[in-house]
Simulated assay, not measured.
Amino acid sequence: MIKANEFLALLIAVSFYAVNIEAQVTERARPTEWNNIVEGGRFVDRFLPIPPIGPLTQDTWGAENVIPRYVNNGIEDDKWSYWGGNILIGDDGKYHFFVCRWLEDSPKGHMEWPESIVVHTVADNSSGPFKVLKSIGKGHNPEAFKLKDGGYIIFVIGGHYYSDNINGPWEYREFDFDARDREIPEGLSNLTFTQREDGSYIMMCRG
């Protein structure tokens, strides 16, 4: 049987928990000025749908709620799950998309991502369809960028690939960060890079 003082302590703890949950919800009235915003005046209006490429098809993989769809946008097939990546425009005028993938039928499903492989894909435009040129190596959360000296970096969790040419060959290396007297957190997994005027890059961790 719960003693009176134990029950009181439990009641106080539950009350504080409930107050904290309620404190995270703040109801605000919609500003009346928003009623005067013309179409295109909002930030969200800058996000436009990708123009469809090719026909709308039923003959593809996936659940009922994603069929029919356009399968030539970006990159997809029924063998691989694709993840992350970004696009660089090469000197050849083509769009080079560095992305990682793992087998779609893996028993681990999405949790197969630690075994993902970075691949180099290419298309004639930014929307696709992208075709795989070659496998680069093991890695996840790839992000590619071009260095001031003309070389290329593909960041992956735990390190990066380097090449003098966007088409490779690629060499795996580890980063040597200048912490600038700051603590580098553990688990650097979602990094992005911003180039400074002197050609160096600031690494930002997105969590």
Rank of each mutant, 00 (worst) to 15 (best):
A13R: 08
H140V: 12
V118P: 05
P114I: 00
I117C: 00
D124N: 15
H140E: 15
E174M: 05
F7A: 14
M204Q: 15
G137L: 06
K108A: 15
P52L: 03
N167E: 10
G93N: 01
A29E: 11
P142Q: 01
V66H: 05
T32N: 07
P142K: 05
P114S: 00
G159N: 00
E104K: 13
F193I: 04
V38E: 12
A4Y: 09
K138M: 13
G159D: 04
G109T: 04
I184H: 02
N36I: 04
L11S: 11
F155S: 14
D164I: 06
P107T: 01
I53H: 04
L88F: 01
T26Q: 13
G40N: 01
N5P: 07
I37L: 12
I166K: 06
G151M: 11
V66K: 12
W113S: 10
P49G: 02
A4D: 10
I37M: 06
I166H: 05
I21S: 05
N20Y: 13
I89G: 03
L48T: 15
D105E: 13
K131G: 10
D105P: 07
R69C: 06
I75C: 05
V99H: 02
R46F: 08
E186M: 06
T192A: 13
S116E: 05
D176S: 13
V38T: 12
A9W: 05
L103E: 13
S81E: 10
I117S: 02
A29G: 08
D124T: 15
P31I: 00
W83M: 09
Q24D: 09
P114H: 02
F16D: 02
F7V: 08
D181C: 03
F43A: 10
D181S: 09
I12F: 10
G90Y: 10
V118W: 04
N86F: 03
H140R: 15
Y95R: 08
R182Q: 14
G54M: 04
V122S: 00
Q58C: 08
M111W: 14
I157E: 14
E6S: 09
Y95D: 04
P51L: 08
K3L: 11
G187I: 00
A123T: 01
A29R: 12
F155A: 14
M1E: 13
R206W: 12
G150N: 05
Q195I: 09
R173K: 15
V25S: 04
A179S: 11
Q58I: 05
L103S: 08
A144T: 15
N35D: 15
T32Q: 10
G109P: 03
N5M: 12
V118M: 06
G168R: 03
E33V: 06
V71T: 15
A29V: 08
V71G: 01
T57A: 07
N36F: 11
A13T: 10
Y162C: 07
S116G: 08
Y95C: 10
H160K: 13
S135W: 08
G158S: 06
G85M: 01
